[in-house]
Design a protein around this nucleic acid. Sequence first.
DNA 1: CCAGGGCGTTCCGCCCGCCGAAACGGACGG
DNA 2: CCGTCCGTTTCGGCGGGCGGAACGCCCTGG
Lengths: 278, 278
Amino acid sequence: MGIRSVERAMNVLHELNLQPINTIAQLHARTRLPKPTLVRILKTLEEAGYVENDTRQGGYQVTALVTSLSSGFHKGPMVVEAGRAWAIALTRKHKWPVAIALPDYDGMIVRFSTVPDSPISPFHSTVNRRLGMLTRALGLAYIAFLDREAFDLTMGILRKSQDPEDALSHHPTEADRLMTQIREAGYATRSSLVEPRNSNTIAVPIIAKGGNVLATIGLTYFKSAFSSDQQAIDRFSPLLKSAASAISEDLERLSSKLAIEESGLRPNHVQDLRTSDC
Amino acid sequence: MGIRSVERAMNVLHELNLQPINTIAQLHARTRLPKPTLVRILKTLEEAGYVENDTRQGGYQVTALVTSLSSGFHKGPMVVEAGRAWAIALTRKHKWPVAIALPDYDGMIVRFSTVPDSPISPFHSTVNRRLGMLTRALGLAYIAFLDREAFDLTMGILRKSQDPEDALSHHPTEADRLMTQIREAGYATRSSLVEPRNSNTIAVPIIAKGGNVLATIGLTYFKSAFSSDQQAIDRFSPLLKSAASAISEDLERLSSKLAIEESGLRPNHVQDLRTSDC
DNA sequence: CCAGGGCGTTCCGCCCGCCGAAACGGACGG
DNA sequence: CCGTCCGTTTCGGCGGGCGGAACGCCCTGG
């Protein structure tokens, strides 16, 4: 019941963010919009400066200006802010995309992803995507490092779920065995029962000074790029662990130097003055 | 010549990002759109999940989902990434908005701003806004810390400018005196000749290990909140200096652990595989 | 208690601007 | 040289966006 053209344009802009470069044909396939409609929407976004049509690369991509469509939102937890730079640095160095996820009730939500930074990434950016707790690397790396009480609580919630992604919650001994294994190894990988099969993710917990798991950070790679999963694990799990502990240290420094309360603050209503910072 | 409703909606979304909370009346005043049109656009964005209508606070605001409209773009230089967390932490603690700016030829461009995080901020967010080099705190804190060669080069460019913001470049002795003063103090403030008059900004350079100025970070406050500018300077300049050096250290750690090249990487064309990271 | 103003929101008929099938033209590749 | 697959342009028809007017609400002040 909204404005159709606006809904469509927002979808297109959203889709444009999922891949570094987008052809009309791809967008047509994904959005099911007629090509002339796509061209018209893209032209509009281009005139507004949010999109550019790079003919050399043969496709459309978002420009730096899109950041101004979300510059008003950074109430994210500090762990994501502190982790961003490390995620980006990891991707620049090792090419594979890195994601940071936060717990959300009975699942995890991806809050940052370097997919567009990754020149070899065939993956979609998954910011704001929800992931299962018991099948995804980013979920397992979280739940396995919860303390007993929080773990039992979450498992209790998951047992009520009918989602096949949460099936493991109905097999306590199997689950416990997996959790122990993850805790000992210090990292988790995605369940092999779950799509996509041609890639894998290695994830580790980001643990605060006090011992609480705050978030998880994970790296995704194409299986075909390595002779075995073990090879990728040997290579990346130490890097992720050291990044995770560095993030935790950064958080410590940020809060000790400035004494932040971790909970986001509520913005208050302010009057409209037409001035600017500089 | 684009789709009018889409152009309007993008403008509205952009405006929504400039303030933590937006009433219809404010948006009407800023966009000059009829109120029914605004309501229709906002309803559309709300249905799509990008905006919420917080009736308690009596206004519209962007939601976390807007990040997915720019998640495809993160080519930001590492110094901005490293500085984000510090800017946010400063604002959470001291309430005033903090901005990070990068040099761009003969001016500075704001690349990050915590205006929407600041509950007392009556300022507009200025991400992507261009600032003069010789009047703005964020510009002065940069140019004053350039080495001789780069300084002369930039001043040469500025002398060709007719912009009143660059007028100081035509008065070398005055300029030199100001530069010396800034270098000694370690911070810069906005020229009193320039709008807005009811606020001021204190900015310091972010200097890399090698001695190069990479960027500047500045805090803006309402003059009426302090008994004198000196009081604000005494309070904030040490904080900014310590944040700037912490950012520089973070950069060092990021690059030494991972050996990053500072220049952004160019994303390559990749084939369309329908998979995802997790 | 009511008048007045400002607010966000709803209504509804007019009309214009969006829509998309069809056509175009250029780039491959066989 | 023709077939195919692109991205892009054209253009007429019509449906959906538009905004003035009106509504209901909450203030404030008389």
